[in-house]
C-alpha cells in the first residue's frame, strides 16, 4: 500500500471522484476532510464503484452527496446510520460509508449511532463535528463546547457536550478515532485506518465552521485579525488537540482541557 504522503494531484482526485466543485463556505473544515478522504480512498484504495455513501441532513452530509461520483443516499435528518444499516445488511458485498455531521449523527440520530455501534454493523461512520448546526444558521448542538456562543446560546452554552468517542466505545464500538482537520496528513492516515477496519468503525473529525462558530467566538481564537478566521480556528485545534500517546506522558496541568486525538479499540475500555 502506498504511503499517504505519496499523494495524487488534486485535479486527478477531482476528475476521478467528484461530480462538481465544492459547495462549502470559504475555509470550511468539511472541505479539508473531503480532500483528506479522497487521498485516503485513493491510497487504500477504496473502490468507489463498490461503495455506497450515506448521509443525512446538514453541511457534513453534503460531502458525499452531491459531490462524490459514486452511489449516494442522501436521507432524512438523523437517519443516515439506519439507512446505512439497511444497505449493508441487504448488500454485504458493498462498502457502506456514512459521512454526516454532529447534529445529524449525535443529536437527532444518536439512537441509531449507539445501536449500530452496539451491534457492530460493519459500516464506517465519519462524524464531521463542527460543534453546531451549520446549515440552519449556527445553533447549539450536542457537541458544542460549554460556554461557546451559538445562535441559540447567546450567553454561552450551559450544557456539557458529548464525548463522541467515549459514547460509541461505551456502546460497544470495536474501533473509534478522533482526528482534527488541522493536521490533514494525519487525518488522511486516520481515515485510511478506519476504512481498513473489518467491522464498525467510527471517526470523529474535529472540523471547523468559520461562518458560524468562528465568527461568534472570534474572541476565543488565537492569532491576529490579519489572519483568516479559518486559519485561526485551525490554529486553535493545533494548540488544543494532543495525541493520546503524548498526552499520557504529560503532567496533569498540561493535559487539562486538551482534546485527546488518536485511535481507540473497544477492548481497551473507555478512554
Amino acid at each position: 500500500m502506498a504511503p499517504a504522503s505519496a499523494s495524487p494531484l488534486a485535479s486527478d482526485l477531482r476528475a476521478a471522484y467528484l461530480r462538481q466543485s465544492t459547495a462549502f463556505c470559504p475555509g470550511c473544515g468539511h472541505g479539508i476532510f473531503m480532500n483528506a478522504f479522497l487521498r485516503a480512498a485513493a491510497a487504500l484504495p477504496l473502490d468507489f464503484d463498490r461503495t455506497v455513501f450515506v448521509s443525512g441532513i446538514g453541511c457534513g452530509a453534503w460531502v458525499p452527496s452531491p459531490h462524490f461520483l459514486a452511489d449516494t443516499l442522501h436521507v432524512t435528518h438523523g437517519r443516515a446510520v439506519a439507512f446505512a444499516a439497511g444497505v449493508q445488511r441487504a448488500r454485504p458485498d458493498l462498502n457502506v460509508v456514512v459521512i454526516s455531521g454532529d447534529g445529524d449523527l449525535a443529536n437527532i440520530g444518536g439512537n441509531h449511532l449507539i445501536h449500530a455501534a452496539r451491534r457492530q454493523i460493519p459500516i464506517k461512520v465519519f462524524c464531521l463535528n463542527n460543534w453546531l448546526f451549520g446549515m440552519t444558521g449556527g445553533q447549539v448542538s450536542a457537541t458544542t463546547p460549554r460556554t461557546a456562543r451559538t445562535a441559540t446560546t447567546p450567553a454561552g452554552n450551559p450544557d456539557p457536550p458529548f464525548d463522541l468517542v467515549r459514547l460509541v466505545l461505551g456502546a460497544g464500538a470495536p474501533f473509534a478515532a478522533r482526528w482534527p482537520v488541522s493536521q490533514p496528513r494525519q487525518l488522511a492516515r486516520g481515515i485510511l485506518h478506519a476504512l481498513q477496519e473489518p467491522g464498525f468503525a467510527f471517526v470523529e473529525v474535529l472540523s471547523i465552521c468559520p461562518t458560524h462558530f468562528g465568527r461568534a467566538n472570534e474572541a476565543l481564537l488565537p492569532g491576529e485579525a490579519a489572519q483568516s478566521i479559518p486559519w485561526r480556528m485551525l490554529e486553535w485545534l493545533r494548540r488544543n488537540c494532543v495525541g493520546r500517546e503524548r498526552a499520557a506522558g504529560l503532567p496533569p496541568e498540561e493535559r487539562a482541557g486538551k482534546i485527546l486525538t488518536g485511535e481507540w479499540r473497544g477492548e481497551e475500555g473507555w478512554p
Binding site: 455506497v52 439506519a82 446505512a84 444499516a85 439497511g86 445488511r89 439512537n111
Partner: peptide, 26 residues
C-alpha cells in the same frame, strides 16, 4: 434473505428503504 430487528420504527423503515436501493424487495 435478511431479517433485522431495528432500534425503533424510524430505523426500521430507513433500513427497508436502504435495502430497496440495494435492489432487494423489502
Amino acid at each position: 434473505g435478511t431479517f433485522t430487528q431495528m432500534e425503533d420504527e424510524l430505523g426500521s423503515i430507513a433500513a427497508v428503504i436502504g435495502a430497496s436501493w440495494g435492489g432487494v424487495k423489502a
